[in-house]
């Protein structure tokens, strides 16, 4: 392991180490996604004062064993050795130590309905402004500082493993350097601007005969897209959708007859559209989008991985939080252009070569692979 400062041997942290402590209690806080260090300090102090005030002087202490490894942090009852808490290390947001107190801040899962409400009511709401639940566990120990340092070291060792798993050699860059690179990447926000402009959102009424299909092909918008909903990939000549003259290939469908399609699997969306067969009027809410997505990746140096992989011109994986995700890269999209050059007929090796040798600003145009196959006649449209 590359120079991970801390009181432990990194190998010991993989197996796990144990500290004795007293558990003082837990409390819950609401927090934005990535609060500043000052806000975190206030959160830690707030957690300590809440826990200390709960029971006052009559506070009962539970003697615990704190198990720390690069995988998880467990709290065991010192007497019975029963597991009281078990948190995956990656869900620990941060730790704080104040004198003989240690505060462990763990993220809680957001209720599914809350996350969906958020998407539906405020498309493109800044991620940082959303509130997330945080559970704060407070401990007391003479070794508080040592415990905090050991957890900090476990964070670093686990993060190095994560970087290696994503093809980044930690020896090539310090942790700070990598997070600096990430922070210099602006979120490519053309999508956000586009979705938040009400002129691009339309409500349409389509007329059709009873028993007639709508005459469309839909595809997924692709993992990594701002709004996970289906895209209109093709229209049947003379079908109700094409006849209306109100739809274009690339449009993202938000809802049909007041049923939201946002976040639903493709098959469910197809089922909803098939279910319209006996209707004579269909109401649709769409966002007009060009069929081609624009991507901008800023890569200051060849030593930084792009953070996505390509197979036969199609993006097949994306590193969460990497520079490519920030640039607008989406899984399942076919690369159409790189820096103004068409790569539609380019061999896979040449595309990989072009990407791996690109530094500075990398501009790409992409499109859902299924849409590309339909537009180029490689696939026969199955209209629904």
């Amino acid at each position: 392991f590359v120079d991970v400062p801390g009181p432990c041997e990194p190998e010991d942290l993989i197996d796990g180490i144990i500290f004795a402590a007293n558990y003082l209690g837990s409390t819950q806080l609401l927090s934005e996604r990535n609060p500043s260090k000052n806000i975190r300090m206030m959160q830690a102090q707030e957690a300590v004062s809440r826990v200390k005030n709960t029971d006052g002087d009559a506070q009962t202490l539970t003697e615990v064993d704190l198990f720390i490894s690069t995988q998880r942090i467990k709290v065991l009852n010192a007497d019975s050795q029963e597991t009281m808490m078990d948190n995956a290390l990656r869900t620990i947001s941060y730790i704080a130590d104040i004198g003989n107190i240690v505060v462990l801040m763990a993220r809680r899962r957001m209720p599914r309905t809350a996350s969906q409400d958020c998407i539906e009511t405020t498309p493109g709401a800044p991620e940082a402004k959303k509130q997330y639940k945080m559970i704060c566990h407070v401990f007391e120990s003479e070794d508080a500082q040592l415990i905090a340092q050991s957890i900090g070291q476990a964070f670093s060792v686990a993060y190095q493993e994560f970087l290696r798993a994503n093809g980044i050699n930690p020896e090539d860059l310090s942790q700070k350097e990598y997070s600096d690179i990430i922070n210099t990447q602006e979120m490519y926000n053309d999508d956000l601007i586009h979705f938040s402009n009400s002129e691009n959102c339309k409500e349409l009424q389509l007329e059709k005969s009873k028993g007639e299909i709508l005459g469309v092909v839909i595809v997924e918008s692709g993992w990594g897209s701002i709004l996970p909903t289906v895209i209109l990939a093709n229209m049947m000549n003379g079908g109700p959708a094409a006849r209306s003259g109100k739809l274009s290939i690339g449009d993202q469908i938000m809802s049909i007859n007041n049923t939201s399609l946002v976040g639903l699997p493709l098959a469910t969306c197809q089922g909803i559209i098939k279910g319209l067969k006996n209707q004579v009027q269909v109401k649709m809410n769409i966002v007009s989008c060009p069929p081609v997505t624009t991507v901008l990746i800023k890569r200051p140096d060849l030593k930084y991985q792009l953070g996505f992989s390509v197979q036969n011109g199609i993006i097949c994986s994306l590193m969460r939080g990497g520079i490519a995700e920030r640039g607008g890269v989406r899984v399942g999209h076919r690369i159409i252009e790189i820096n103004g050059q068409s790569v539609v007929a380019t061999a896979h090796e040449k595309i990989v070569q072009a990407l791996s040798n690109s530094v500075g600003e990398i501009h790409m145009k992409t499109m859902p692979a299924a849409m590309f196959r339909l537009l180029t006649g490689q696939e026969t449209p199955m209209y629904i």
Binding site: Q45, Y94, G99, R108, F155, S179
Partner: peptide, 21 residues
């Protein structure tokens, strides 16, 4: 006494929805 904060570098790669209960 001084308050020290150590942030988990994995935090920025982690989806809040994926966090455990």
């Amino acid at each position: 006494s001084a308050l020290t904060i150590t942030i988990n570098p994995m935090e920025k790669h982690e989806q809040p929805q994926a966090a455990e209960e």
